[in-house]
Design a protein around this nucleic acid. Sequence first.
DNA 1: GTCTATAGTAAGATAGAC
DNA 2: GTCTATCTTACTATAGAC
Lengths: 192, 192
Amino acid sequence: MDTVDRLIESTRELLWERGYVGTSPKAIQQRAGAGQGSMYHHFTGKPELALAAIDRSARELCSAADAELAAPGSAVERVTAYLRRERDVLRGCPIGRLTQDPEIMADPMLREPVTQTFDWMRRRLARVLTEGRDRGEFDASLNADATASTIVAVLQGGYVLARAAGSAEPFDEAVTGVLGLLAGHVVPDENS
Amino acid sequence: MDTVDRLIESTRELLWERGYVGTSPKAIQQRAGAGQGSMYHHFTGKPELALAAIDRSARELCSAADAELAAPGSAVERVTAYLRRERDVLRGCPIGRLTQDPEIMADPMLREPVTQTFDWMRRRLARVLTEGRDRGEFDASLNADATASTIVAVLQGGYVLARAAGSAEPFDEAVTGVLGLLAGHVVPDENS
DNA sequence: GTCTATAGTAAGATAGAC
DNA sequence: GTCTATCTTACTATAGAC
């Protein structure tokens, strides 16, 4: 991993742990094992470095979700796999946490990948649910768009509850709850 | 409102807008219209002031929720009233946002009211759902504890989605989604 | 109680040598 | 490309006068 990569990775970790406001150039340099001159040679400053880090996290997040949601299986199976995927719950979501950062939200450049990520995620899940309903897996009363937003919200809120509790338990419980609610709209398989 | 109150209120607003890391004593003083000497006369420093502010927000949040959840009506009606209550969605949750703050989470004193608030909220909602189920409003398959956690998570996650989108729309949609899912477990009223 | 002065540390960068 | 000064401003207080 070269210096540029180490700087981006360090920034990614620090944004995740401490947010933009709580992350200093000095902390980034120390974690990357790079000097000030090195950092300012490759990047114009903290915002540009943060943008590179956020972009990378956003891409990773979407591609990981897509791997789960594009897999074979029923809609419920895929949504369950996505929700139950092993996660470092107490770390929270590297993109979601940025929505709490006033300087990220105030800068259109930094904010854009955050907006895009959740837009994409809601649409991607809505597509899975719509397909499932079209195939007769769900009853017709299921609102695919709204339910997709609910599922993404449960994940993001689950992180909040877990961090507040200092335990992954509320996250798992919230996921259990939404899957239980969703089960009420699943049409029993005639082949089972 | 005396100086102490103005200091606490200013801290509350700033913690809400910018978090603990992003809030400086100077900013608090300016918003409160108080000098440095005044602030340090009444409080030992930023942590003590933050604790007073967080405690006040936590109390307000719980008492506002209780007003909704202890009202007359069916369980679904009360949960709906709670979820649909008018909110300044884009501001987010004054307590939930603190879970993203590393210095809040690292300090047991500051963290405790955050932990307590969500504990209380989950239990309070679980009680409403359990009562509803016991009265036959829900079918027996409803998991009251898990669903309570889901509902709190939808709120917290809804704030995240709304802030990311710069619009209250995803919040409202996530709420619509969870209420739609919950409706699948409601037993039709024989008197209607 | 409130004000001003002082002070050490960190943030966020720029300049210029190597 | 990287390193070491240097610089300005902000953070988070403490001290002592009024």
